[in-house]
């Protein structure tokens, strides 16, 4: 029949009401051009100013000397530092322990991330390269108090060759040797000291049982 319209196929008729979704469905299987943030994180620029980190010397001692120059430089007054004296008195004799080479260390270190503007002036001010910035940026939280990061949160994790302070400096070396690169890893004596302290700590409660 000449006037016979070409009838659509069975499937075409079947899917006609939802044909509009074709674009949608076909797009679902295409390569995505948008940022897939939570699933796939696009790397930041290498020098992106993210969360801070307090670095350590290769033997695990902290680089921070508690000088407060970062706090001084901070335009937003976001940093609080309080120094204290390193103490080489043995801990069993009431000493407070050694946390950094030299005389002074940062006893209190806080950064208020609800004031910090990530300008990096603190990094420039740091005389010992103790404070640097990472590329980490996922900082949102649901209360103000938790966004004040304390020293424990900011300190870099221990890497291989490092042991957890407090422990003495590398034997025979001075503070300046740390900055001249003479220290590469914790020595056996430092390891022994830390182990002894942790043994003391773990043994004490059991002593009570005996």
């Amino acid at each position: 029949m000449a006037d016979e319209q070409k009838s659509p196929g069975f499937f075409a008729e079947l899917f006609a009401p939802i044909a509009g979704f074709g674009v949608t469905f076909s797009t679902m299987f295409r390569k995505v051009v948008t940022e897939e943030y939570p699933e796939e994180k696009r790397p930041t620029a290498r020098r992106f100013h993210g969360r801070h980190q307090l670095n350590r010397h290769p033997d695990g001692l902290e680089k921070c000397v508690g000088c407060e120059l970062c706090a001084w430089a901070c335009p937003a007054d976001a940093i609080l530092v309080e120094g204290a004296t390193n103490d080489d008195t043995p801990i069993e004799d009431g000493g407070a322990g050694r946390f950094s080479p030299g005389e002074r260390y940062g006893r209190v270190y806080q950064i208020n991330y609800l004031r910090c503007i990530f300008c990096g002036l603190c990094i420039e001010a740091c005389p010992t390269r103790a404070l640097t910035m990472t590329n980490f940026y996922e900082l949102a939280d649901n209360n103000r108090a938790d966004l004040i990061f304390t020293k424990e949160q900011l300190l870099a994790p221990l890497q291989s060759g490092m042991v957890q302070p407090p422990h003495p400096m590398v034997e025979g070396l001075e503070e300046r040797d740390y900055y001249l690169g003479a220290v590469t890893a914790a020595t056996d004596a430092q390891r022994a000291h830390v182990e002894e302290q942790s043994m003391r700590h773990t043994q004490e409660p059991t002593e009570e049982v005996h």
Binding site: E68, A71, W72, G83, E103, R104
Partner: peptide, 9 residues
């Protein structure tokens, strides 16, 4: 006062 503070604090 040793290492306790800085003048600007």
């Amino acid at each position: 006062y040793r290492f306790r503070s800085r003048p600007f604090d």
